[in-house]
């Protein structure tokens, strides 16, 4: 469950204020936010992730108003409740695939079970890459690892920033399918922001900025 109320953001170095429409998603509901670059899609996503502070308004995730949390509590909340997927960079470069998942859980202060991790990689089709460094993976494999890192700690909210923009059609379809399956499996809200029109059909709720 996630809701936002009269959310605005002011850029530090300018006087312009961005105002965002109110969001209201029930449990496990997903949302696609479409918009051209520069309209503040990523800003909205980072506000929802608690990486930016709003000028006004509230964001409530799973009954917690994250705009009132201290920096430290916000770090911990983000680690536990939110998973993020990015366009290109997805994992820590000095670690292997499996170590990345372990590190992800370590930072969230959760214990890791190797079998469960390998099973997750298996579902995402990259179990055979578990001991590879991230620079040995293809773009499609990297994006699957990105999904694994976003869901391994069973978050309540998955935020994806242009997850398909670098992918070809085949990978695009597959990645979106996996992302939605994982969100459903975790009963998590999925919010995807993109300018990629290919994935429009995957969503019931579409918001244009």
């Amino acid at each position: 469950m996630i809701s936002s109320n009269s959310l605005t953001y002011q850029y530090p170095s300018s006087s312009s204020v961005l105002a965002f429409p109110n969001l209201n998603l029930d449990e496990a509901e997903s949302l696609l936010i479409l918009g051209k670059s520069g309209v503040g899609k990523t800003t909205l996503l980072h506000l929802l992730a608690g990486l930016l502070n709003p000028a006004t308004g509230n964001i409530t995730i799973n009954h917690t108003n994250i705009t009132t949390l201290s920096a430290k509590a916000l770090d911990a909340f983000r680690g536990k409740q939110i998973g993020m997927v990015f366009q290109n960079n997805h994992a820590l470069r000095s670690l292997t695939v499996l170590e990345n998942l372990k590190a992800r859980l370590y930072f969230t202060k959760k214990t890791s079970n190797k079998n469960a991790l390998v099973e997750l990689l298996n579902v995402l089709g990259i179990a055979d890459c578990q001991n590879k460094k991230t620079n040995e993976l293809s773009i499609g494999q990297l994006q699957r690892l990105g999904i694994a890192l976003a869901v391994v700690h069973q978050p309540k909210l998955i935020l994806a920033d242009e997850p398909t923009s670098s992918l070809d059609d085949t990978n695009c379809t597959k990645v979106m399918q996996l992302l939605q399956e994982q969100a459903t499996a975790n009963k998590a809200n999925l919010i995807v922001i993109t300018h990629d029109q290919r994935i429009k059909a995957n969503f019931k709720n579409v918001l244009s900025l």
């Binding site: 680690g79 960079n89 994992a91």
Partner: peptide, 16 residues
Amino acid sequence: ERAFDLALMRTYGASN
């Protein structure tokens, strides 16, 4: 160089 890695760790819940 690793700013992104460090930022990733922050999204994983690691504090400064």
